[in-house]
Amino acid sequence: MEKVLFLAHNEEGGGLSRACLEALSAARDLAQGLGAELAVGLFGGEVSGAAEAIGGCGAACFLAAAGPVFASSRYASDAAACEALCRASGAGLVVAAADSRLSRVLPGVAQRLGGRIDTHLTGLWVKDGSPAAARWFYRQRMVAEFTRSERPWLMSVESGCFEAFDGPGAVEPEPVAVDLSEACKRTEVLGLETPSADEQTIRPDAELLFVAGAGWTKKQADGRTHVKEAEGLILDFLNRTKASLGSSKSLVDISGEGHEVISYLTHLHQVGQTGATPRHPKGLAACCHGEEPHVVGWRFIGERRAINLDAGCGWAQGKADVLYVADAFEVLARLNELLARA
């Protein structure tokens, strides 16, 4: 019989991240569909809070590899912990969130276990008594459904694809011994660099994604560019709505070319073909133009609207719910005025 292990690490505050709770739902559904036993494997500095947060998930066992040495996100110690948890659980199927910490470590763990891995799954279900999964290929250009026969099979699931599990309960995880050699400690985590709240323009949990296109830095009808004005309008809008900022590749590239730039824009903001494909309930694109490869930047946005001067704009036609054929400079200025009054 199959056995499913849900693998997760605790958050700084002691609980589990939303992404991990979503992955737990995926793992539970899978176990249920297969009639398989569910196990939970937790690693991190102190995991009792995390265990309690999901104590009611119905897992047959809770395993933990905890201690200060696992507190920080370090590949070697994380890999050792995950390997030990997987081995201790004896699971053939392992499900985890595709967050940065787990995405870094899971493939190596799969290798150590002699197993296989599939990452960034957007769907996981049971078909004909076997697990089946979906994920996107070629930078979100096409979606595939597949299965595999090898075990252990490790899987990471994308955030935003499953309901977050909610079912706390008292539970005492069983400690799992991890053999951590000195060689695993050659890397020392120095800390996190996070943008201050004021500088924060990437907000993964925001309701709205604002996608800025290269049109903001192009010459306008008067034959001049108005980049400083664009910069002010966009930042004002973001601060007032707490929206997350995404940008088209061309706008980011322009910023790197020594042209007049939108100063707070970096490659981290890039969405689309060679950038991120964030998940937000709503998306507003302005001055974006492009076709299929670029538009993948908002493939996973719920409701989409766009502002563009070109009614035939490929970014919007057939991909947005509403296309406003208008001057984005003027619209955003008015919008900011309205937001200021609201």
Binding site: M142, E150, D321, V325
Partner: peptide, 22 residues
């Protein structure tokens, strides 16, 4: 290997875009 694909597809959903002009 043991990996087998059931399907690979382009996303089909094409949205009805409402055009707001003038």
């Amino acid at each position: 290997g043991g990996l087998s694909f059931a399907s690979v597809e382009l996303p089909k959903a094409r949205r009805e875009t409402r055009l707001v002009k003038d």
